[in-house]
Nucleic acid binder design. Structure first.
Length: 854
RNA sequence: GCCCGGGUGGCGAAAUGGCAGACGCAACGGACUUAAAAUCCGUUAUCCCUUAUACGGAUGUGGGGGUUCGAGUCCCCCCCCGGGCACCA
């Protein structure tokens, strides 16, 4: 073959066409090879197209896939579209364009862009959550969950915006106002579909332990689930038959309870409030119901509350304590009521101080902690200071057999619970912060629920042969005005007549949230064309679980928790074979854009920058600016479009730069100048292969060592996803081997193979250039590192005197400790430096250093 | 406030407790060229000593302490940046 320039445009087109034509990356079901399932978080195909953040994770997974194929794995690497959702619907409201048209167009753009990067997806498995053949099975899964008793309708508050006449998603409400227009948003109760994810709280928590996920993400899920262990305790209401049950994690502080608090929504509030306090209580309830959650829970908010006039009896000591209502107690957690122990709970302490409620200390801090925290123990004992650290019980005994004085916190808790249980007035109780999952949206562009509201008020679940329930064509995508979804205007579509009983009904007009489609797409990829089932269980058993899942950390809780929940339900139903879907999870870091900030720290958009003498100025007011990485955004004009990079440098350079910037997980700033460097490296590689004389000859010791060190480094680094250092190893190799204009075939072929997962187009072309005329490098065997070549005859070691580096000497690489020491001591410079000094000791690290301590 | 990340040259970054700054960018100098691009070679942490870019010495991984023959790496305290959670009793 004739030498040509590195014409990346022609090369990349040629091989992308070749891969598509030959279905090079087709994953075969039931191959004898070990399977490896690599999944990217599939994108929402927006109108803006890809930005440089998308290809980061996709490049990483692509490299792993190609590496695994060369190591003999049968790789499943699919791509699809999470295409239901708000932007297409909002565009429809504004322009009247049907969301399916927008979606189709955006998918085409995304697909073209993704293909231009040469990713090795099996495109035969492509899917979109909006395909009727896909959402049929999303509805089918809903049916399974419903039948298992995990779906229910409940009247819960939604974000209702009267000015816009619509319901908003949480994400569209910013500081209690609508994102668009800044109108007030209130909480309005509406019938909503809920999932009992709380039934799976414990298993979702336990399951985390065995997952190979970033600790941060696991911790976020743990916090979200929010398990706490404590007790429910029943307090009698004084002069009444009513009882108030409270939840506490600190039953050991029961003797310190000086008041109680009910949340304003607690069902007993009106019952127990005495006549003289009615007006105040009603006013308070009314006031807090109008407040948004944000207002109620915002920081630094001073505590508020009112007394109900009622008293309760503390069951451990019979003391009468006042019952208050306050919005710092949430109705949705625990029992919606607490016992307040101001002496040992900061919130209660704050409240008690404000309303002059007594503080009664029941835990004496340990000496050690008093010292550490630098507090006066007397202040705690007198109730002047709130103490929530360790300590021992005081003032905590009654005549009915409970005595926890002198006990530590843990022991006191278990004793108290035992006592409460014996008396029948309380029990050990575990609570979770996790709430049931609100699953319906008042939207058009989502999966319709396979549900009908019948005339008689009953709810009918469609049967499996009544799905797919197709989303109807409508002309008007505007909200219905009643707070219902645009589907409420869908006319005939709404009407339903039961085929068996003839009873009339109206279809559910809510649609499912965007999470629905992404909850199970990894399962459909296994068997995307199956018409009879969501997936074939045999294929599921072969491919699952996902071995590597890569995506952004913004899905840490929601998507990843929801899909784990569905997966566990499917597992319980015997529909999948593993109880966790994603074995290993990696979050790629955010890529920031180059931005500029002025002396006041304000960011200045990219089009207002003027560069003079290597310094940056604001064109408008002459302020000197400093370069500063910031999140890419339209307004800052710092968004980098991959297409532009590919046009100038090619897809291989784009891929390489994305990986060379730094560790995959790190947040890092994009700098287009950096692409120049990897582009040069590829050009250099190209010249080394295509301009050198390639011959078969035996490499010398030094070259063999470099070659095998490179194999070892690249192999390890790709396995551990440290692509940046793998690339630098290949650069070192090139710097070494491109010095000569004659190259051994062995070195050349090994290099191309090592490069091929990272920069596949150029690798294919060079592979072909070397005479592999028909075929692809994709399934060539990955080079093997032979340890015996790594060893060099001589190694350089450092000789230090008292830890200070002095000289470097060459020694035979198999010198033992004694020989190494002797060599070091006989060196003339060392001998001079230690002359006349006593050697205290000598530390010797084999093949590394000798440290002579004097 | 709490929980995770992170802080290393002008910049992106490397470093199983063992020579800090590999690799790359930028900058500077040189070669090639009529010239430019491309390419190649070299220099590039700070300070001191010095006729000096030699030789030599000291300092240096956010700050302060500690462990160790030896610390970017381990331990304690503090500061700053990014992300998440936020009255969950």
């Amino acid at each position: 073959m004739q030498y040509r320039d590195y014409d990346f445009k022609a090369i990349e087109k040629k091989w992308q066409d070749y891969w598509v034509k030959n279905k090079t990356f087709k994953a075969t079901d039931f191959s004898d090879k070990p399977k490896y399932y690599v999944l990217d978080m599939f994108p929402y195909p927006s109108g803006a197209g890809l930005h440089v953040g998308h290809p980061e994770g996709y490049t990483a997974t692509d490299i792993v896939c190609r590496f695994k194929r060369m190591n003999g794995f049968n790789v499943l690497h699919p791509m699809g579209w999470d295409a239901f959702g708000l932007p297409a619907e909002q565009y429809a409201v504004e322009t009247g364009t049907h969301p399916s048209i927008t979606t189709k167009k955006n998918i085409e753009t995304f697909k073209k862009q993704i293909r231009s990067l040469g990713f090795s997806y099996d495109w035969d498995r492509e899917l979109s959550t909006t395909d009727i053949e896909y959402y049929k099975w999303t509805q089918w899964i809903f049916i399974q969950l419903y039948r298992k008793g995990l779906a229910y309708l409940d009247e819960v508050p939604v974000n209702w915006c009267p000015a816009l006449g619509t319901v908003l998603a949480n994400e569209e409400v910013i500081d209690g106002k609508s994102e668009r227009g800044g109108h007030d948003v209130i909480r309005k109760p509406m019938k909503q579909w809920m999932f009992k994810i709380t039934e799976y709280a414990e298993r979702l928590l336990e399951g985390l332990d065995k997952l190979d996920w970033p600790d941060g993400i696991k911790e976020m899920q743990r916090n979200w689930i929010g398990k706490s262990i404590g007790a429910n305790v029943v307090f009698k209401v004084s002069d009444s038959l009513e009882k108030i049950e409270i939840y506490t994690t600190r039953p050991d502080t029961l003797f310190g309870a000086t008041y109680m608090v009910l949340s304003p929504e607690h069902r007993l509030v009106r019952t127990i409030t005495t006549d003289s306090y009615k007006n105040e209580v009603e006013a308070y309830i009314e006031k807090s119901s109008r407040m948004s959650d944000l207002d109620r829970t915002s920081l630094n908010k001073e505590k508020t509350g009112v007394f109900t006039g009622a008293y309760a009896v503390n069951p451990v000591n019979g003391k009468r304590i006042p019952v208050w209502i306050a919005d710092y107690v949430l109705v949705s957690y625990g029992t919606g009521a607490i016992m307040a122990v101001p002496s040992h709970d900061e919130r209660d302490f704050e409240f008690a101080k404000k309303f002059n409620i007594p503080v009664f200390c029941v835990i004496k801090p340990t000496e050690k902690q008093v010292e550490e925290k630098n507090i006066k123990i007397q202040d705690v004992l007198e109730g002047k200071l709130c103490w929530f650290g360790d300590g021992t019980g005081i003032n905590s005994a009654n005549s009915e057999g409970l005595d926890i004085n002198g006990l530590g916190v843990n022991e006191a808790i278990s004793r108290t619970i035992k006592w409460l249980e014996n008396k029948g007035i309380g029990e050990g109780k575990t609570n979770y912060k996790l709430r049931d999952w609100l699953f319906s949206r008042q939207r058009y562009w989502g999966e319709p629920f396979p549900v009908v509201h019948m005339e008689d008020g009953s709810i009918k679940l469609l049967s499996e042969n009544e799905i797919p329930l197709k989303l109807p064509q409508v002309d008007n995508f505007k909200p219905s005005g009643s707070g219902e979804s645009p589907l409420a205007n869908a006319g005939e579509w709404l009407e339903y007549i039961d085929p068996e009983t003839g009873m009339k009904g109206r279809r559910e007009t809510n649609t499912m949230p965007q999470w629905a489609g992404s909850c199970w797409y990894y399962l459909r990829f296994i068997d995307p064309l199956n018409k009879k089932a969501a997936w074939d269980p045999k294929k599921e058993k072969y491919w699952m679980p996902v071995d590597l899942y890569v995506g952004g950390a913004e899905h840490a809780v929601l998507h990843l928790l929801y899909s784990r929940f569905w997966h566990k339900v499917l597992f319980d139903l015997g529909l999948v074979s593993t109880d966790e879907p994603f074995l290993k999870l990696v979050n790629q870091g955010m890529i920031l854009g180059l931005s500029y900030k002025d002396p006041r720290g304000a960011l200045v958009p990219g089009d207002k920058i003027e560069i003079k003498d290597g310094k940056f100025y604001n064109r408008e007011n002459g302020d000197e600016l400093i370069e500063f990485p910031a999140k890419m955004s339209k307004s800052l004009k710092n968004v980098v479009n991959p297409d532009d990079v590919i046009k100038v440098y090619g897809a291989d350079s784009m891929r390489l730069y994305e990986m060379f910037m730094g560790p995959l997980e790190a947040t890092k700033p994009w700098n287009t100048l950096g692409v120049e460097g990897v582009f040069r490296f590829l050009k250099k590689s190209w010249r080394m292969i295509c301009e050198s004389e390639i011959k078969d000859f035996q490499l010398n010791r030094k070259q063999l060592s470099t070659l095998h060190q490179t194999i070892k480094k690249v192999t390890n680094d790709i396995s551990t996803l440290n692509f940046n250092t793998a690339i630098s190893a290949l650069m070192i190799f090139i710097n070494e081997f491109s010095k000569d204009n004659i190259l051994s075939r062995e070195a050349a072929e090994t290099f191309i193979k090592l490069l091929s997962p990272l920069a596949p187009h150029i690798a294919e072309e060079m592979w072909e250039f070397l005479g592999h005329e028909n075929g692809t490098i994709v399934y060539e065997k990955w080079p093997e590192c032979k340890e015996e070549y790594l060893k060099e005859d001589e190694v350089e070691i450092l000789v230090q005197i008292s830890g200070k580096p002095k000289v470097r000497i060459m020694i035979s690489s198999d010198s033992d400790e004694e020989a190494t020491k002797a060599k070091a001591l006989e060196n003339s410079i060392i001998a001079e430096l230690i002359k006349g000094k006593a050697i205290r000791k000598i530390i010797c690290v084999k093949s590394r250093l000798v440290n002579i301590v004097i």
